[in-house]
Nucleic acid binder design. Structure first.
Lengths: 126, 126
DNA sequence: TGTCAACCTAGACGAATGCCGAAGCAAGCG
DNA sequence: CGCTTGCTTCGGCATTCGTCTAGGTTGACA
């Protein structure tokens, strides 16, 4: 019975992760770096960066794979593979509705990454 | 005399790149994605993410390699290779002063990446 | 000048990545 | 029921990546 109710077995990053003292303000510990690096790695490919943008900027916050795939000169399986990478990095989540699969951006995670890179957080508490 | 004053031949990203309508607000064009992806890829490794943080959060905004290397269980050349990757991604710049080499974070670039990931920019201009 | 220390470059090698075609599920439709 | 369409998974290559050891190159100092 390896079939269990494990809805999203991947998803390393949680929505509630309080992981975000700006990178330039406080040294990132090794374990945090290990947890966050996959997210940056997932964004470190032009195709995935575009996919991420297309999903995040889509109309209802979600995009159908059938709209994403024809935007590239790549095979369906390859796009699927990139989407899987984004999913496993915790950057998007997928949902099947009828025939089509929709991807939604996890904006909380994006915000965490943005906060980590931001130079000016609130540099000094008065 | 192939020795020329070529201080930083790599450095893809410029300080003045106006590359940053938030990813979730407007679809990232292919050429922009191609230009930015290497920066994210460079951050997509735990060691480099820590290096980046150590450099960016260092005292005078710069860190000596001699301080960075012993912080990891890795050989000197490996650290040097990671620093080179960060340098070629335009995230840091290096300078030799006497015996030691100092790395400085290019905070402008970091801010650009942060702005790209930020969900809330100023969503609608009134 | 010789020597030492700090750092980079060169070359090698196993592991991971990006890509594809083929095959497998899932939904819908005849 | 079977066929078609949408998407994923599987198995395979060629390429890139992370790491190492060995060998420079640069600067300081006796």
């Amino acid at each position: 019975m390896p079939k269990q109710a494990t809805p999203l077995p991947h998803t390393v990053l949680g929505d509630d992760t309080t992981c975000c003292p700006p990178l330039a303000q406080q040294r990132v510990p090794a374990d945090v770096a290990t947890a966050l690096a996959p997210a940056f790695k997932a964004l470190g490919d032009p195709v995935r960066l575009q996919l991420m943008s297309m999903i995040a900027s889509a109309e209802n916050g979600e995009a159908c794979v059938c709209d994403l795939t024809p935007a590239f000169d790549l095979s369906g399986p390859t796009i699927s593979h990139h989407l899987r990478t984004l999913r496993e990095a915790g950057l998007v989540e997928a949902e099947r509705r009828g025939t089509w699969v929709y991807y939604r951006a996890r904006k909380t995670v994006l915000s965490q990454l943005a906060a980590l890179l931001a130079s000016e957080g609130r540099t000094t508490a008065p």
